[in-house]
Amino acid sequence: MAKYHLRLAHLYGNLLNTYSDLGNIIALRYYGKQMDADIAVDVISINEQFDPDKYDIALFGGGQDYEQLVVSKDLPNKKAAFQKFIDDGKPLLAICGGYQLLGKYYIGAQGEKIPGLGILPHYTLSQDHNRFIGNITIKNESNGQLYHGFENHNGMTFLGKGERPLGKVVSGHGNNGQDQTEGAIWKETYCSYFHGPILTRNGEIAKHLLLTALHHKYLEADLSQAENLVIKPTF
């Protein structure tokens, strides 16, 4: 029995599951175990309630155009819950479609403008008959960490005021192929286009998300052991 217990909301996990986002949950559980924390996962999908107070950490993955469109129609029902979860400073990891849907809007497969949650200030345009596909490496400029992943996206995302990128592109395309940014950080919400999945190749991000969740939930606990966890390279 683990000392700490975290609850993870896998948002639209049965629709936005295309890019092997399950790997991010597997990685969180793997590192969580080393921090003496177990993780209970609930999938929260369309037509279901998202109670932000019930969860300590959340994952919002990427899907196919069609599923993403269906999810976008359900989002207004969950907007207040998303807003509270994010404003409370709880860790949220958003990948690809999830990343786009947190922003103001994105452009769908038929060229239509699809509104997102508008909680984060970025927006996403589309490329004509092109995708950014390939291996990507970025550098987190605040701590010098290198992150490795694989990108495969048509969308070009432009960050807004108050957002900083997850990293600066070392090789690959990143958010839009123009400004050398990749991903976004807003409070404790981490966004990225990375497959890999991101946490399986970049355990430092998993560690940060888990520590944030643990500190938020266990205010008085001595978490030094978890903080000292050494992440071994996997890539």
Partner: peptide
């Protein structure tokens, strides 16, 4: 397939 993500599924 140049993306190895699928092994996680």
């Amino acid at each position: 397939g140049i993306d190895t993500s699928w092994i996680w599924d």
